[in-house]
């Protein structure tokens, strides 16, 4: 397990401030944050490579605050691999290994054994990342820290490497902390998500909870939520209604009156060409389509409603079926429970 309590560290002008989170034993933690948020610094502090200036760090039940890097039993994989250039691939994999058979098995699982005779200088970026993964795992660490370890791999090899890391994590019960920019990766891999920005933890918890219930509009925006409105809640006929300008949105639950933000994920909104039949969905809007954009496997459709813009996501199949064009009228529907207030 990894437990950071008010962890502090300073590197030049940058500092980690009161970083607190818990990754239980055997869990897979994911650290998400923009460039320069301190993700790599956090991994280096946990590894013991950078000194912490305050707080408490507990690793697998031990107080590791003052423990030397070589005594922490951590496998660290940097994005750039940092393979030893004066050694062969095999020597890199075996560098910290105490059991050659295990090291060879790990190398085989990542397809690195085929590169054994190669010089490190001749490897591609992706191959370097695989060798770095094998090298870190070859000594069977007690904790695994990964800093964007799949970023240079092509999609098929990335999926394979991700599967292998996840499988080893499960087989060994290996507590893992993985830094990534990829929200899909964070969602699919993580048991715990830690959102870091400017050296501070903005939010941490189960990935689904962090994604669905961001604590602040900034977190929501960072996590890719597109419908974020500033306004306030009023109680009308016993029901909570959120107002932002001329936009009125029905809200579920025990919302209290007062200023706040409303967040609706684009994936929660249904689109129709004609006015939908009455349903349990409390929020229905009609508007003109102002933008249609392809984003990976999904399409984003924007409509203008009462001076505000709402974005809905739909699959390519649905987009083809609806055949919407800019200027068309479209109907957006979502349930009151899809509205998150913060």
């Amino acid at each position: 397990m990894i437990s950071a309590a008010a962890l502090r560290a300073r590197v030049g002008a940058f500092s980690l401030e009161d970083v607190s989170f818990d990754v239980p034993g055997g869990a897979y933690g994911v650290v998400i944050g923009p460039t320069g948020s301190g993700k790599t610094t956090l991994l280096e502090v946990i590894s013991g490579l950078l000194p912490q200036t305050g707080g408490l760090l507990t690793l697998n039940g031990r107080d590791a605050t003052r423990e030397a890097a070589d005594a922490r039993g951590i496998g660290l994989v940097y994005q750039l691999g940092f393979l030893f250039p004066h050694l062969s691939v095999e020597q890199n994999v075996m560098y910290g290994a105490t059991d050659a058979a295990l090291a060879n098995t790990i190398a085989r699982r990542f397809g690195v054994d085929a590169l054994y005779a190669r010089s490190v200088r001749s490897l591609s970026g992706g191959e370097r990342q695989l060798v770095a993964l094998a090298r870190a795992l070859a000594r069977r660490p007690g904790l695994l820290l990964l800093d964007e370890p799949f970023s240079a791999l092509d999609p098929p090899r990335r999926a394979a490497a991700r599967r292998e890391v996840r499988a080893i994590h499960r087989e060994w019960g290996l507590t893992t902390l993985h830094v990534t920019h990829d929200f899909a990766e964070a969602g699919s891999l993580g048991d715990v998500a830690v959102l870091l920005d400017a050296g501070r933890v903005l939010q941490s918890g189960e990935p689904a909870d962090v994604f669905r219930h961001p604590k602040t509009p900034y977190v929501a925006e960072f996590l890719g939520a597109e419908n974020i409105f500033a306004g306030g809640v009023t109680i009308e006929d016993g029901a909570a209604v959120f107002h932002s300008g001329r936009l009125a949105i029905h809200v579920a639950g025990a919302a209290t009156a007062g200023p706040c933000h409303a967040i609706i994920r684009a994936e929660e909104i249904l689109i129709a060409r004609t006015s939908p039949a009455p349903s349990s969905a409390r929020n229905q809007f009609e508007g003109a389509v102002t933008e249609i954009a392809s984003v990976g496997p999904l399409w984003r459709v924007t409509i203008e409603v009462n001076g505000a813009t709402l974005v809905a996501a739909l699959t390519t199949y649905s987009a083809n079926e609806l055949a919407l064009r800019i200027g068309d009228t479209a109907f957006f529907t979502f349930k009151a429970t899809a509205v998150h207030l913060c």
């Binding site: 280096e44 590894s47 490579l49 030397a68 070589d70 660290l76 940097y78 910290g96």
Partner: peptide, 9 residues
Amino acid sequence: GVARTLGDS
């Protein structure tokens, strides 16, 4: 740093 995490003093 990597060498340290791999057990080197």
